[in-house]
Design a protein around this nucleic acid. Sequence first.
DNA 1: CCTTCCATATAACATATGTGAGTGCAGGCT
DNA 2: AGCCTGCACTCACATATGTTATATGGAAGG
Lengths: 239, 239
Amino acid sequence: MPNPLVLKLEQRDRLSDDEKRVLESAISRVRVVEADEDIVHEGEHPSESSLLLDGYAARYKIFSNGRRQITAIHVPGDFVDLHSFLLKVMDHGVLALTPCRVAVVPHVALERITDEHPHLTRLLWLSTLVDGAIHREWLTTMGRLSATAQMAHFICELFLRLKAVGRTDGDTIQLPLTQAELGDTLGLSTVHVNRVLQELRKEGLIRWQGDALTILDWERLEKVGEFTPTYLNLQHEHR
Amino acid sequence: MPNPLVLKLEQRDRLSDDEKRVLESAISRVRVVEADEDIVHEGEHPSESSLLLDGYAARYKIFSNGRRQITAIHVPGDFVDLHSFLLKVMDHGVLALTPCRVAVVPHVALERITDEHPHLTRLLWLSTLVDGAIHREWLTTMGRLSATAQMAHFICELFLRLKAVGRTDGDTIQLPLTQAELGDTLGLSTVHVNRVLQELRKEGLIRWQGDALTILDWERLEKVGEFTPTYLNLQHEHR
DNA sequence: CCTTCCATATAACATATGTGAGTGCAGGCT
DNA sequence: AGCCTGCACTCACATATGTTATATGGAAGG
């Protein structure tokens, strides 16, 4: 079974066999997390990081009044809390949106990698940088796009990210989020999420039945969401 | 003159004299950029990164319709485009908001650091991770707070970040942004920025005259903005 | 088979924020 | 001195999105 992180990194640069072996052996164990359970809690000081192998996860923050904001949706191949290696304290929680399989990588193993494998280190660094690029993109869509455009943009992004790890089926992806969760992601109310989805459906841009979301008209969806994929950095470069 | 980056990193971990020397010698030259000029252009493939020594800068993205979103405000000590070392293509521009002095660090020098100085590498990585943490915080405030709270939060954050590099004067900071620029930062219209500022003033939370912004009541401002500084990672830890 | 529980869907209404236009002031330039 | 120009500030009005409430339907479970 190919490690989806390897898959993702190989899209962005060449990985030597040695580096692949080092990555694999950095994994101390594989853990299963139930849906709706935290993979990592806010405020924790973890001594290991979690690489998502299967399932969907979300980074989130909760306010005093109970309102929640999701700041990232993670798919297989994502290192959901690689940053805790250096940030030490989790300033947010990470939640399993579906049942998840998670590879656990101790921080000591990461430290060893940074000591001994500079190129691999750069690739790990890179993957946190891509997280940052996605955050910036979300900031722009939240700040300057209509709710409809924002939703379209989100769907385009998720599609390409899933495609990069081989989790698309034609024009269809699994989207196991409730409309409430989508609202927490985009900063919208549940009601408005529903309105916006109706609109995208009526326009013939998407179909969403059960967990299966199908993109019916990629070009127009991209246009509505003002989507350009540069920021996902899916190009192969020497890094 | 102490390098403000060294100042910032030393707040988060110990730097050896050797590491400080390596950092200093990585700088190939110092450049001055006029206000309202780009330090780096969107779409560029830079071969060096820029460390802000003096002045304020902003990362921004512009949409087809001319709307602009600022995704980060940078202060002295910030590496405004360290990520371009590994992301290669700039997915946004970086603008000098005031006249800026910028230290230029070639990517080859950064690559050498990653090859030879693992601990320093981790600290550079860390500073991009803090950028990411700030992005996440902005996402939550944009998505889930009122415009007033968002503004209060922004002011609290900027104050602490400036304090970390010794650029505060009592309860006063320099805030050389126009209300329009603030609007582009928070995702608000200029008119609404003005309304919100009036409110914060009327409540006796801040004073803002010319470029000088004074925090009159830190505790209440923090409360209004639901601000907690954990995400800025200003603690000293072994990284 | 019935009940319970969510999630989706709709409706009526409330409001935070955006839009477009205009005023006045202050600093810089000729 | 006079004239721009940019910026802060206001007003009247428009609208996107939030809120509260209710209906519907499917899935899980006894």
